[in-house]
Design a protein around this nucleic acid. Structure first.
Lengths: 222, 222
DNA sequence: CTTAATAAAATTGGATCCAATCGACAATCA
DNA sequence: TGATTGTCGATTGGATCCAATTTTATTAAG
């Protein structure tokens, strides 16, 4: 368990132990530190987090509802497996939700929003660490959607953007670092700045479908 | 608490008490038996379900992840409020997800699927009970999406269809019983039977947006 | 009479303990 | 030899108990 060091450090920031355990576990799963199929023994986790089994159980329940772990009665929790079809599932959801969020948000984007998005794009060009790159990518997308004024929709998008991060490494391997959609990101930002919702939405759809196809190709190859 | 009678009856069907509590609470919230804003005291629920507080807590955690209750540390759980903006949020998600699911599913629909959908439509014409009507409506929609081959997408659609049921009574009040989209349902089914994905998707989008506007109008009026 | 401080009650968060269930391995029988 | 059954260990599900926090009631001061 190599995330043991993360544990002691972040501890006092949280109000409740359950929230602490939940956040660390989610991050570990989404980043790939906990691979798909890993069984999550309650007692083991409780010892690692230095809490009792109860906050672990509640955290696992919430992660189950977020489709990050599979629960079987009296069998326990297992990190959900990643697969080509699971990736296709997540990307189909993204392809449906994100253009909708963008269309709602775009008319209300401010100059500061666009500047922030541009800044994030620039950071992405020089960021070597993949996990941080995934974070920057998420934030870039979310900045563009944030003005949609639909908190549930945004929360869903955020959740599936994070889930897509589990496949980022495959995306990398399939398409290579520089091909990772920076052109599309720039074009998307340009269309958004011009206020062209139709064009922006088209680019975004293509962007997501391209990523999905890259991951599919990777799985097909191996 | 008028769902106390539901409790003892369904008890032995469930493998775990947590699943039992979770399902009954979700049904109660979605059907409106538990109104928005209702505080959910753990001990009270535990007594009503005749279990300890722990399965109640785990169930509430999962309902929180499903956005059916709001949790505040040391304050407890409250049934999430319904509102015009919340309805708009849910319907924006539906409008994004369901046409996508339909397009994926439509080419794989079988004659039996379409017959089942038609049967559900016929049942809806004569069903007086609103809660059953909501159930029939959900099943009609889901039959059309079920062949999409994207379990996560379908699960999301199912969740938000159920959430929309919380607003069904408003939809009723605003548009009246017969105007509740049976024309659109029939047209949707016809387009699906003809294999016309574009037309079916257009009708579905209109259908959802019409419902959303009806609910919005209801909230605006009162 | 209002407001601030404080003490008591109610409620949730967390820990420990016990019971129920599942998996593996061994023993028995066909 | 193979299948079935039974027992034991491991692990989770559930109950009870204690601690921490919030809220409410009370009291005192302005």
């Amino acid at each position: 368990m190599e995330f043991a060091d993360l544990i002691a450090r972040g501890r006092p920031r949280y109000r409740t132990a359950t929230a602490f355990v939940e956040d660390v576990l989610r991050e570990a799963i989404l980043s790939g530190a906990l691979a798909g199929g890993t069984p999550l023994r309650q007692e083991e986790l409780a010892a690692a987090f230095d809490v009792s089994r109860m906050p672990v159980r509640e955290a696992l329940r919430q992660l189950e509802a977020q489709a990050l772990v599979d629960f079987a009665p009296h069998k326990g929790a297992v990190v959900t497996e990643i697969s080509a079809s699971d990736a296709a599932d997540h990307y189909a959801i993204r392809a449906a939700l994100e253009p909708a969020a963008l269309r709602l948000s775009l008319p209300h984007l401010t100059a500061e929003d666009l500047a922030r998005a541009e800044g994030l794009l620039a950071e992405m060009d020089t960021e070597p660490d993949m996990s941080r790159l995934g974070d920057l990518n998420r934030r870039f997308h979310l900045v563009l959607y944030a003005r949609a004024g639909r908190p549930r929709l945004i929360a869903l998008v955020e959740q599936h953007l994070a889930a897509a991060d589990r496949y980022l490494r495959f995306h990398f391997a399939a398409l290579g670092r520089d091909k990772m959609g920076q052109h599309e990101h720039a074009a998307l930002l340009a269309a958004a700045s011009a206020g062209d919702a139709g064009e922006a939405s088209r680019i975004l759809t293509t962007h997501i479908e391209t990523a999905a196809r890259g991951i599919e190709a990777f799985f097909a190859a191996r």
